[in-house]
Every structure is written in structure tokens, then in C-alpha cells.
Amino acid sequence: MGTITGRRAAYERARKRRSTVVATVSSLAVVTAIVVLVPKMPRWDRVHESFFNGERFAHSLPRLLDAFVLDIKIFAWSMPAIVVLALLVAITRNSRSAALFPLRILTIAYTDIMRGVPIILWIYLIGFGVPGLGIERPWNSPLIWGSVALVLTYASYIAEVFRAGIESVHESQRAAARSLGLSSWQTMRHVVLPQAIRRVIPPLMNDMVSLQKDVALVSLIGPIEILRQAGIDKSKFANFTPYIAAAAIFLLITIPLTRTTDWLIERERRRTTGTRIS
């Protein structure tokens, strides 16, 4: 018995070692190819100078980080608004009450229209259009209305993500909840939504990462955030390095964000499931 277990474990170890070696070698090969071959391209010197200029990078970075604070602010106030609005839209669309029929039609029209037009157009239309109605300061700020445009468009996408999640929860779960005397709202709140949201977290994170980048589009109507600041620096020195610096700053936020969610999902899965297939 002991020897069989030992052999099994040894086999597993050997297999794991082999996969690790294969993965490491192939990754190294790709990275080496890029590092060695790209600088051999005929105009690498000029690209290196205008995109990877150390001096320009060091000069722009602090200014870009300052400007990035605005991106984070827009993201921070837009995201909760998006999630709340999207949930409301998804729940309304899924409701079975006859009284909500007009609202259901409205939410369908809303998703169709918001998703059907490019986000940049909405930022222009709402960001310039609404303040143009003659609203007094400070409520005519393009920052506000640009964010509103972001919220309205993103909520229409994310509402569909939530709706897919809600519909994926089996009818028998509702039957069980209702048979226990829960109202339809309590069933939604305690039984359907928690399961639906867990299931759509990966696509939801996808959209959050997207939003984190699309925040930069608000700069098109005025506010100086990171992308616009990078554009200013680029023009001033006729060098593209600030864009590389901006890209690096975006990655600094998005990568930890996605890694953390993956970890949270995995932890939740381990907590609630029994056996798992390797």
C-alpha cells in the first residue's frame, strides 16, 4: 500500500516538474526572441529614442501620476453608480410583475439605445449637451456629465451581464425559496442575486478593467487626466515616452485588480464546494 502511494506521489511530482520545465523554457524562448530580435529591426534606434526615452519617462511620471488621481476619482464614483443602476435595470427586466410592464419596456429601450451608440459619442452628447442647457456652476462641469455618460453606457452593458447571471439561477431555487414563504423580492435578494452575482464576477471584472481604461475618454471634453496629460507632455517634447509611462501606470492598477478578484473567486469556490476535479 505504502509503496503504491509512494510511486503515485513520485509520478505526480515528476509530471509536475516536467510541466514546469516546459512552461519555463517556452516562455524564456519567446521573451528572448523579442528582446534579441526587436532591437535588430532597421529603425529600432529611433523607436527606442522616441518611445523609451529614460529622461522623458522620469520627467513625465510624477505629472502623470498626479493626473491619474483624477482617473481614479472618476472611476471611484462611477463604479458604484454603474453597479447599482445595472442591478436595478437587470432586476426590473427580470421581474414578472404585470405592474412593472411599462418599466420593463423602458429598460429594454434603454439598453438597446445606450449599447448601440459608441461611448465617445455619448460622452460628447451628454458632456457638452446637458451643460449647454444652461445649468449653473458647478453643476455644468464636463467632469460630472462625462461621468454620467460613462455611468449610463456602462450600466447598460453590465445590466446584461447581471441579467444573464439572474437567468442562470435555476427555477427550482425560486420554487424552494417561495415554498418557504419568502416574497418574490426576498427570493431575489437572498437566493437569486447572491448566486447570480457570484457567477458573473469574471465578466464583471472584465468590464471593470475596461471602465478603468475608458475613464480616459472623459478627457475628450476637457478634464486633464492621465491620457490628456500624456498628450500634453508628448507635444511639448515631441516624444512618445509619456504614453508608455501612462500605459505602465494603467497596468499598475489593472493587473493587481484582476489578480485579486481571481484569488477571491478561488477562495469562495474552495469554501463552498466539496470535491474538485484536478
Partner: peptide, 14 residues
């Protein structure tokens, strides 16, 4: 429904 409980074929636990 709080006076009439029900148990299902497929358990339907949450």
C-alpha cells in the same frame, strides 16, 4: 406557504 411546507425531489438547497 409558511403554513404548508414543501420538500422537493432535487433538494433545492441554496
Amino acid at each position: 406557504r409558511r403554513r404548508i411546507g414543501m420538500v422537493f425531489q432535487n433538494f433545492n438547497l441554496f
